Deep mutational scan, measured.
Amino acid sequence: MLYRITVRNADGEKLEIVVEMSEDEVRALAEELRKAGYEVRVEPIPEGEEP
């Protein structure tokens, strides 16, 4: 499935990426980023919607 991941650092800089991963993989990635001090938001992209 496609997911949009938005990551912000302490300075407020934002990075937005689209990935194709399983829900478990995305959850693990988000958890690791949060542990590293980043603010993370994950949104699933519905099938048929443009990323």
Score class of each variant (00 low, 15 high):
M1T: 08
M1F: 13
M1Q: 06
M1R: 08
L2D: 01
L2Q: 07
L2E: 02
L2R: 15
L2G: 05
Y3T: 01
Y3C: 01
Y3W: 11
R4C: 02
R4I: 03
R4K: 04
R4D: 00
I5H: 00
T6Q: 05
T6R: 07
T6W: 15
R8C: 05
R8F: 15
R8N: 04
R8E: 06
R8Y: 15
N9F: 14
N9Y: 07
N9Q: 08
N9H: 07
N9W: 10
D11N: 11
D11S: 15
G12N: 06
G12H: 04
G12W: 03
E13G: 13
K14I: 12
K14L: 13
L15N: 13
L15R: 14
L15V: 09
L15Q: 14
E16R: 09
E16Q: 09
E16M: 12
E16V: 06
I17C: 04
I17E: 03
I17N: 02
V18L: 10
V18W: 08
V18C: 04
V19D: 01
V19K: 06
V19F: 03
V19R: 10
V19Y: 03
E20Q: 14
E20P: 03
E20V: 13
E20M: 13
E20K: 13
E20F: 15
E20G: 05
E20T: 12
M21N: 02
M21E: 01
S22T: 12
S22N: 07
S22D: 05
E23V: 10
E23S: 08
E23Q: 10
E23M: 11
E23W: 05
D24K: 05
D24Y: 13
D24H: 10
D24C: 05
E25Q: 10
E25D: 06
E25F: 09
V26C: 03
V26A: 11
V26Q: 01
V26P: 00
R27F: 14
A30K: 04
A30S: 10
A30F: 05
E31S: 13
E31C: 15
E32R: 15
E32C: 15
E32K: 15
L33Y: 15
L33E: 00
L33S: 01
L33W: 15
L33P: 00
L33A: 02
R34P: 00
R34Y: 05
R34M: 06
R34H: 04
K35D: 02
A36Q: 10
A36R: 15
A36M: 11
A36Y: 13
A36L: 07
A36V: 10
A36N: 11
G37F: 10
G37A: 02
Y38F: 14
Y38A: 04
Y38Q: 02
E39H: 15
E39G: 05
V40F: 04
V40S: 01
V40Y: 02
R41F: 08
R41L: 07
R41Y: 06
R41M: 06
R41E: 07
V42H: 03
E43A: 10
E43C: 10
E43M: 08
E43P: 00
P44M: 10
P44N: 09
P44E: 08
P44D: 04
P44I: 14
I45Y: 10
I45L: 12
I45M: 09
P46F: 11
P46I: 13
P46D: 10
P46E: 09
E47S: 14
E47H: 14
E47G: 13
G48P: 12
G48K: 12
G48E: 08
G48H: 12
E49R: 05
E49A: 12
E50F: 10
E50P: 12
E50H: 12
E50Y: 12
P51Y: 01
P51E: 08
